[in-house]
Computed example of a mutant assay.
Amino acid sequence: MRAVCPGSFDPVTLGHLDVVTRATKVFEEVVVAVGVNRSKSRLFEPEERLDMLREATADLPSVRVEGFTGLLTDFCTAHGVDAIVKGLRSGGDYEYELAMAQMNAHLTGVETVWLPTSPSLSYVSSSLVKEVAALGGDVAALLPGFVHERLLARLAERAG
């Protein structure tokens, strides 16, 4: 079975990688689908996010990284995806994700599978990591090393 782990991954965190890695234990193939929405402001360009994810998942042979625009359900249909995998950090995530999961199932019949985030990473989000790093906080333990370096460099570019 093939699953998709969708997101913006701006940037990819250890929380994201935890969910992707655990999904590989359940599904034969996991496609990490990076949403590309040009109308949304992101810190990293789509190709940069794809490159970081490819590097971060290089040691996971059953993982492939792809970009997509438009509806996730269209991506699922085009790529023969059997399930959507989402990580849940809290009950709030479940409330937010439930309606989307129901709509996705209605549109294509693709079911959503939720994996609880590992407790040690349950507070990690890309938005929070970017905010803390921009204010000078140490987020090194929440990101792959090379992503942390790129984040600091990008924030310095934007500040300078």
Rank of each mutant, 00 (worst) to 15 (best):
C76R: 05
E131G: 10
C76S: 08
W114K: 02
E48F: 01
R158P: 01
R54W: 05
T57E: 07
V20F: 03
V20G: 08
F146Q: 03
D10H: 11
V132Y: 02
A140G: 12
S127C: 04
P6Y: 10
R38C: 00
E45F: 06
A133W: 05
L98D: 11
A56S: 15
V113Y: 11
D10S: 07
Y94D: 09
S62A: 14
R64L: 09
E157N: 03
P119W: 11
F146W: 05
E95R: 13
L115C: 06
E111H: 13
E157D: 14
V147M: 05
R54Y: 07
A159I: 00
L71D: 01
L72W: 01
K130F: 11
D93F: 05
V85T: 09
L151A: 04
R38H: 05
V12I: 13
L50V: 15
R89A: 09
E131L: 07
V113F: 14
G70I: 12
G67H: 00
K86Y: 04
G145R: 14
L17M: 04
S39K: 13
W114M: 14
E45N: 01
A141E: 12
E48L: 00
L128I: 13
K86N: 13
D82C: 09
M103S: 11
P61V: 04
H148Y: 15
E45H: 07
V30Y: 02
G15K: 08
E29C: 07
V31A: 07
T24D: 10
L152H: 10
V20S: 08
R22G: 04
E45T: 14
N37E: 04
L71W: 04
Y123F: 15
S120A: 15
A159F: 02
L71A: 10
R54C: 06
F146S: 09
S126K: 08
P116M: 15
F75M: 07
R2N: 12
A140L: 03
A99K: 13
V4C: 10
V31M: 07
E45A: 15
M52V: 05
R158S: 11
Q102D: 08
V147F: 05
R2H: 11
T69I: 10
S39F: 00
P6E: 02
A153Q: 13
G87E: 13
T21Y: 09
A159Y: 01
V139K: 03
F75K: 01
V12D: 08
L53T: 10
S39D: 13
L152D: 06
T108Y: 02
G7L: 04
V129M: 08
D51E: 15
A105W: 12
G80Y: 06
S41N: 12
L142E: 02
N104I: 07
G15F: 12
